[in-house]
């Protein structure tokens, strides 16, 4: 089976670490999408109301913010050369989006 072996591209990580990290961001964005959909369902369940629409809009903004963070990080990982480490502010922003969604959820439950 020597036909398939080629000298490895020196710019490529054989462990595919940047790709795995990119997919981890994608998975997390997907989880965030599911939570946002559940929030919208909960807020608009008994017919549209002003507070329900406001919470839905807020959750959509938070989801968009998370998507933007993921997109920025994915772009940074895709650049040639060794990928830069995640910035603490970036991680904190993603966590704050999650916490804000949880606060919206608590407001909807109560």
């Amino acid at each position: 089976m020597s036909t398939g072996t080629r000298p490895p591209d020196p710019g490529r990580d054989p462990g595919l670490q940047p790709e795995r990290t990119r997919l981890a961001w994608r998975r997390t964005t997907l989880a965030c999408t599911v939570v946002t959909a559940l929030a919208a369902r909960s807020a608009l369940h008994g017919g549209p109301s002003a507070p329900g629409l406001a919470v839905t809009a807020l959750c959509c903004v938070l989801w968009a913010a998370f998507l933007l963070l993921a997109q920025l990080r994915i772009r940074a990982l895709a650049r040639p050369g060794p990928p830069p480490a995640l910035a603490a502010r970036h991680a904190t922003a993603a966590v704050l989006c999650t916490v804000a969604v949880a606060v919206c959820a608590a407001a909807l439950v109560l």
Binding site: T21, A24, W25, R27, T28, A31, C32, V34, V35, L38, A39, R41, S42, A94, V95, T98, V101, A102, A105, A106, L108, V109
Partner: peptide, 15 residues
Amino acid sequence: LAWLRTALALIAGGF
């Protein structure tokens, strides 16, 4: 990110 997904799953569980 895996812990963040766990957190999101718990929030989804609350919903």
